[in-house]
Simulated assay, not measured.
Amino acid sequence: MGFFITFEGVEGCGKTTQLRLLKERLQAAGEKVVATREPGGCPIADQMRAILLDAKNSAITPLAELLLYAAARAQHVQEVIAPALKRGETVLCDRFTDATLAYQGHGRELDLTVIGQLNGLATAGVQPALTVLIDCPVEIGLARALSRIEATTGAREERFELESVRFHERVRAGYLALAAAQPERFVIVDGSGDVAATEKRMLAALAKRLPAATQAALGA
């Protein structure tokens, strides 16, 4: 089996950039890597992503939102993640089940037990071996995210960025609570600095948490 790493954090924390940098390092060292994201990661789930992140769909109810995430995840796991792990590859995923607990559970204040049950159903037992939580103050993250959205020429995926600061504070607190409850799986990386500083912290945090072969490939 391969090794499954997820990247989590509030909007604009820098997780997507850090995932890309780790992917490049692993591939340069000869590792077979699949980089993917949620919601999305495959054609059917990408269509659900378009619905979930479009600010025009602000009328989506919290429960409908939760069920769409679960449906997208079920497709994604069976089509992309599980096959890659079976091939023995390293899978890097930008958001996974913890995002649903943080956003729909702590942010939307839906029942965490119900979310856990849906996550278990959607993943068919596939769980990350390691989760990198890139943490930064909400104000810093939102400023970065909104700046990125203004600069984009593609779809404006901003439905969550337009939520209140209080919502995002609940999400951040939810992530930190998840990390505190599962220290054997989570590593927390300070993402408030620039990209290079965050990458240095991430590599240091991962040095003893990756499989031996991967550590050797990175020179850790």
Score class of each variant (00 low, 15 high):
Arg185Gly: 06
Phe160Asn: 00
Phe4Leu: 13
Ala196Gly: 08
Ala205Cys: 08
Ala177Cys: 10
Leu19Gln: 15
Ala213Asn: 14
Leu121Ala: 06
Glu31Phe: 07
Gly41Phe: 09
Leu110Arg: 09
Leu67Gln: 05
Pro211Asp: 13
Ile60Gln: 01
Tyr103Arg: 02
Glu163Phe: 10
Leu63Gln: 07
Phe4Cys: 10
Val34Leu: 15
Leu26Lys: 14
Thr6Ile: 07
Pro43Phe: 05
Gln18Cys: 09
Ala64Asn: 02
Gly30Lys: 14
Gly125Cys: 03
Asp135Phe: 03
Leu110Trp: 08
Gly116Ile: 04
Gln75Lys: 01
Ala155Ser: 14
Ala205Leu: 08
Ala181Gly: 09
Val80Thr: 15
Arg87Asn: 02
Ala45Arg: 04
Ala213Gly: 14
His168Asp: 07
Thr36Cys: 06
Ala64Asp: 08
Gly2Glu: 11
Ala72Asn: 05
Asp111Glu: 12
Lys15Ile: 08
Cys13Arg: 02
Ala181Lys: 15
Lys56Thr: 02
Gly14Lys: 01
Gly154His: 05
Ala212Val: 14
Arg209Met: 08
Ala28Tyr: 08
Arg49His: 06
Thr61His: 02
Tyr103Cys: 00
Leu112Phe: 05
Gly154Trp: 03
Gln182Val: 04
Glu150Ile: 01
Cys93Lys: 11
Gln104Trp: 04
Ile149Tyr: 07
Gly14Cys: 00
Met202Ala: 08
Ala179Val: 10
Val187Ser: 04
Leu63Ala: 05
His168Arg: 12
Ile188Asn: 01
Ala145Ile: 09
Leu178Asn: 05
Gly41Cys: 06
Asp194Ile: 02
Glu150Trp: 00
Ile81Thr: 07
Arg185Ser: 07
Gly116Val: 08
Ala99Asp: 01
Ile188Leu: 09
Ala71Ile: 03
Thr6Asn: 11
Lys200Thr: 15
Ala196Val: 05
Phe3Leu: 13
Asn119Phe: 03
Glu11Phe: 02
Arg185His: 10
Leu133Glu: 06
Leu52Asn: 00
Ala129Glu: 15
Val132Cys: 15
Lys23Cys: 14
Leu21Trp: 13
Leu112Gly: 13
Leu22Gly: 12
Leu21Tyr: 14
Ala122Tyr: 01
Thr113Ala: 15
Asp98Glu: 13
Phe160Lys: 01
Gln104Asp: 02
Glu89Trp: 15
Asp46Asn: 09
Gly174Val: 03
Ala151Thr: 03
Met48Gly: 01
Gly116Leu: 04
Leu178Met: 14
Leu101Gly: 00
Ile51Val: 09
Gly154Glu: 13
Thr152Ile: 04
Leu52Gln: 02
Leu206Gly: 12
Leu203Glu: 09
Glu163Asp: 11
Asp98Ala: 06
Arg159Ser: 02
Thr17Tyr: 12
Leu118Gln: 06
Leu206Gln: 12
Ile140Ala: 04
Glu199Pro: 05
Lys32Leu: 12
Leu85Arg: 10
His106Glu: 05
Thr113Asp: 11
Ala216His: 13
Pro137Cys: 05
Leu112Cys: 09
Met1Lys: 14
Tyr69Ala: 01
Ala212Ile: 11
Leu110Gln: 14
Thr100Phe: 04
Phe160Gly: 01
